[in-house]
Amino acid sequence: MLSRPSPRGRAPAVRPAPGQEEGRSRRSTAAARGGGLLLGVALLAAVILAGLAIGTKQIPADQVWSALFHPSGTANDAIVQRLRLPRALIGVAAGAALGLAGAVMQTLTRNPLADPGLLGVNAGASAAVVTAISVFGMTSFTGYLWFALAGAAVAATLVNALGGSRSATPVRLALAGTAVNAALFGYINGLQLLDLGTLDSMRHWSIGTLAGRELGLLVTVLPLLAAGGLLALALARPLGALALGEEAARGLGARPGRTRALSIVAITLLCGAATAVCGPISFVGLLVPHAVRPFSGPDPRWLLPYCALYAPVLLLGSDVIGRVVIPPYEIEVGIVTAFIGGLIFINLVRQRRVARL
């Protein structure tokens, strides 16, 4: 017996299986996130070009290209190669380091207001630099570099020890970091008040700037930045498990104590090296993870690469803005990032886009 055709002569629609719908959704999300990374690369290239072309003297894009790849010894070649290119490269490296350190810190502590300074890295670096200036008479940025790195490492180690080392909890780390920060900044302020020469020298470093930094400083700290960046990216999966809680992380095969200790090492290398070269720059490590999380999602495997791309965009963009606001003078990038970062962060909070961790 023949079956009746459907009323309209059409075969019934076949719905995809739930597994197929889930697979399509995952592929679509991955494609969108991949597109966001490509956009980050394009924006980073644009701000690098802007940083090479814009300043007290405007240089056309074709002359920037010629200075980079076909130099002829002109004044524009010298400006691009000796002044603006080192500034741009240091900005890329420092911005990526601060963005990665901020994302790792917020994921590690499950605290949306955490930034690398919570571990005492900035305070430790500043305390070491002020000691170098006041006690040892240090005057060069190269000398500041090693003192800042050592101070950052000592402060982070102290916070980790006070927080319980491998048994530390996010709350204990935050409390230990707050206490160490308060003590170190009290020491810094006291030493500056006792020695006005130290205060005058310290303000040039502590304001946070990319100007006047030689490429040799970046070459010196590049191994530390590379080691910290690779370690942070390698910890993406265990950090994602740790964000679910201690018990869930252990159930997924992660080792919370080891992950926490290695994360602190990565943060210290990244933020300590960036702070040593540029001085303490605020809001980059705090803001960028919040700004990109609606697009990258909370998974550190996506969040960390997003932060590594978009943090240099914020830092270099702020540096370019600081050059053009009140020409022929420049506003230091640390001031601009604090102002822009504050405005953007307030906007994110008002729109309730700050993701819960």
Rank of each mutant, 00 (worst) to 15 (best):
Y329C: 00
R293L: 02
C307E: 02
S296E: 06
G297L: 11
W302M: 12
G317L: 04
P300F: 10
R350Q: 14
V354C: 14
I331T: 08
V333A: 05
L309W: 10
V324E: 01
A308G: 06
A308W: 10
L315G: 08
P294L: 06
V288T: 10
Q351S: 14
V349W: 03
P298V: 11
I335M: 12
G285C: 05
R301I: 06
G297T: 13
Q351E: 08
V354A: 13
V354N: 11
H290Y: 13
R293G: 06
L348H: 13
P305E: 03
I326H: 11
P328A: 08
W302N: 10
Y306R: 01
A311G: 00
L303A: 06
R293Q: 15
A338P: 02
D299H: 06
V349P: 00
I281H: 07
L287I: 14
I326D: 08
D319K: 12
F345L: 15
I331E: 04
V354L: 14
I340L: 15
D299G: 05
A338L: 13
D299M: 01
A311M: 04
R301T: 13
R293C: 03
P328Y: 07
G341H: 03
P312S: 12
E332T: 12
G322Q: 10
G285N: 04
F295H: 03
V324Q: 10
F339Q: 00
I335A: 14
A308F: 07
L357W: 15
P327G: 09
G342A: 07
R352C: 06
C307N: 07
Y329R: 12
I344C: 14
P298G: 15
A291D: 01
Y306N: 06
L343C: 13
L357T: 12
F345E: 12
V325R: 07
L286H: 11
A311D: 04
G342L: 03
I346F: 12
Q351A: 15
P327W: 02
A308V: 09
F345V: 07
S296C: 03
A311K: 09
G341Q: 09
I335S: 01
R352I: 04
V284A: 11
G334M: 12
R350E: 12
A355P: 00
N347D: 09
V313Y: 03
R350F: 03
L314N: 02
P294S: 09
V324M: 11
V292N: 02
V288H: 08
A311R: 05
R293T: 12
G322H: 09
R350P: 09
Y310W: 15
S318Q: 11
R353W: 13
V320S: 06
G342Y: 08
E332N: 12
S318H: 05
R356Y: 10
G285Y: 00
L287G: 09
V324Y: 02
Y329A: 14
Y306D: 02
L315H: 08
Y329F: 14
F339V: 15
F283K: 02
L343F: 14
I321Q: 00
V313C: 11
P289R: 05
I326M: 12
I321W: 07
R353G: 04
V333I: 10
D319P: 11
F345Q: 06
L348T: 12
V336I: 15
A311V: 08
I344D: 02
V354W: 13
F345I: 11
P327N: 09
I344L: 15
R293Y: 00
R350M: 12
V313P: 01
P312L: 10
P312W: 01
V284S: 13
D319S: 07
S296W: 04
R350W: 06
P298D: 05
G322T: 10
I346A: 15
